[in-house]
Design a protein around this nucleic acid. Structure first.
Lengths: 338, 338
DNA sequence: TGCTATATTGTAACCGCTTACATCGGCGAA
DNA sequence: TTCGCCGATGTAAGCGGTTACAATATAGCA
């Protein structure tokens, strides 16, 4: 692999001159410039990002830590992030499936020195672990983490607001036995959504019954199983609120297999509003989060921190949600495809 | 940020000793070892990946170039890749939306020196561009690229075989007017699938009619539109083969909106067999590619190349496909959920 | 002609790490 | 005792860049 020294030798100049030419900095004689350019091209020279990073103390890369990569949710976050990072000429170093502190710790140290900043999406992390494993100077954006600290920028989905609004919406359809398919145990999103569901049920005359709270793990399969379980109840719930769209899709499948009409016999709603929600049969009512935008915002926030060398005032933002009302909840004038 | 020098100074040893302790290499007195370890911990020292990479000439990172990040297909490839890379203690540097040569070129040089190897998934790249922009020594695995060269490891989906089998399957259901929703123009996968469709139609008594070949771009929306167009034909097609699952999902949605029963009035099949295919209504018949496995294989192949310093014999592999027969094609004993 | 300002280029230090080689005691064998 | 060996540690040369500073040449000007 050709280095800057090879180019310098071939062009008969010093490495400083080569560097100057290639970075368009400092005065260089036009003829020399041309000669260096030509030599570099001839030798197919490409500067090593590594050497540059080391001496410039910046890597032009940012790390993205995700708990998982399964399903449309993460894929959308990633898409938004990649797009935004790329526009700013940054690279994305992705790392997923960090489901406990130890894995997170390992990932954090692995990223060390490799990236200029970090977007962390981890329902399991706490402020202490972060402080212990991150240099104070490294810009970090927490995405949907349950860390309450004004030392970090954070972006959170309004889980409570969204779930509350959706539960209330279902209740306003006249349902009283509204079931919920819960998300993964100990998951902060899952917990907040569940709490909102309970509060709304209590507040708007829903029938609060523990048996209406089925367990799930945010996967299609768990949604399928949960719905199957719920169908065995007497009396059956008349509406099901799945804590995310994947489980709603699984539930939908189960209901269909059992010959239950949605929304006529049982209404259904999800959370996240993934792109395919609008293409399901029936179209799926969901809590719109703006996942792609979430990724975009995360990177934007991080880049801002990077540019200010992390000396800026940290912001804790809660992104509002809205309801995407479609057929599955029984809305008469459902928006079909948005 | 503390460096190895800080630790050395604090511990009263040379940087060489610190390095030896931290890497468990060479003989070090037990007491010294303990002292260094303790100092490192006290100073919260974490070796910089950058410095290490530069001197070791390896980055422990591999690059993944994707054409896009939209939908479950890429998300699954990525998931398989990440999982495999992580197990081998490698990082993934992801970069997407490279839709023309220039963007690819840019991405290739950006990756330069940053990664130990590259997985390239690009329907648009050609061997020449690759050779010109990559050092000969850099291990590369081509994923679904239309490059015919024994200079590169490559992994290809058996587009032709899969599409041929699916078209044939639809014809064997008794359909003669089988329509296809084509993929993005100039896309190699799209072209191969179309060719197989035509061949199968010709060979097994299908009605070869250009109007049965609707345009699409691999997105749900384009599938929706294509199906809408196809429904206006007289006579209508009795089966639709979408070139990927996203378009099949869009088509399904369109058919339902028009009150067309699937599979009774029109049979439907997709390609890729994304995870949710088994959860749709009706469950979607598709060509199973094993997307996750594709990502796994790509990384495995690449790591093999990395370990052999790219001096191994390159292999061109075509991954077989199989049919996942479910309800949407009208199969009586459809596999429901696999 | 001598002096200074300026344009161009080179020298070398540094970024943080690994590692080949040198150094230095201490110990067993001749 | 003396020599060679070995274990423990330090020294310094890279890895591939950037850049402050020095050096040189050239031109402008008094």
């Amino acid at each position: 692999m050709t280095t800057i020294r090879d180019v310098a030798r071939e062009a008969g100049v010093s490495i400083a001159t080569v560097s100057r030419v290639l970075n368009n900095v400092g005065p260089v004689d036009e003829e020399t410039r041309e000669r260096v350019r030509h030599t570099a091209r001839r030798l197919k020279y490409v500067p090593s990002a590594l050497g540059r990073s080391l001496s410039m103390k910046k890597t032009d890369a940012i790390g993205l830590l995700l708990p998982d990569l399964f399903g449309e949710f993460f894929s959308e976050v990633l898409r938004g992030s990649d797009q935004t990072a790329q526009q700013a000429h940054y690279h994305l170093v992705v790392s997923s499936s960090h489901n406990n502190k130890e894995e997170i710790r390992a990932a954090l140290t692995m990223m060390r020195g490799r990236v200029d900043g970090l977007v962390i999406m981890s329902p399991h992390i706490d402020a202490e672990t972060l402080n212990e494993n991150l240099p104070h100077s490294l810009p970090v954006v927490l995405l949907n983490c349950c860390v309450e600290s004004d030392k970090f920028d954070s972006l959170n989905i309004d889980n409570y607001g969204g779930a509350f609004a959706m539960t209330r919406h279902l209740l306003e359809h006249g349902h009283r036995r509204v079931a919920i398919i819960k998300g993964t145990e100990n998951n902060i999103d899952a917990a907040q959504r569940l709490r909102a569901y309970c509060d709304a049920m209590r507040q708007y005359g829903g029938e609060l019954d523990e048996r209406l709270q089925a367990s799930g793990t945010f996967s299609e399969a768990s949604g399928y199983d949960a719905a199957t379980t719920l169908l065995e109840l007497h009396p059956r719930p008349t509406a099901i609120f799945a804590s995310n769209d994947s489980m709603a899709i699984g539930a939908l499948s189960a209901l269909r297999d059992k010959g239950v009409e949605v929304p006529q016999e049982i209404a259904l709603a999800g959370f996240d509003d993934v792109p395919i929600a609008a293409y399901l049969t029936p179209t799926l009512t969901s809590v719109k989060v703006g996942i792609h935008r979430l990724g975009v915002r995360a990177i934007e926030t991080l880049l801002h921190a990077v540019r200010n060398k992390n000396a800026h005032r940290k912001q804790q933002v809660v992104l509002p949600t809205e309801l995407s009302l479609r057929e599955s909840c029984g809305c008469p004038n459902a928006t079909h495809r948005t």
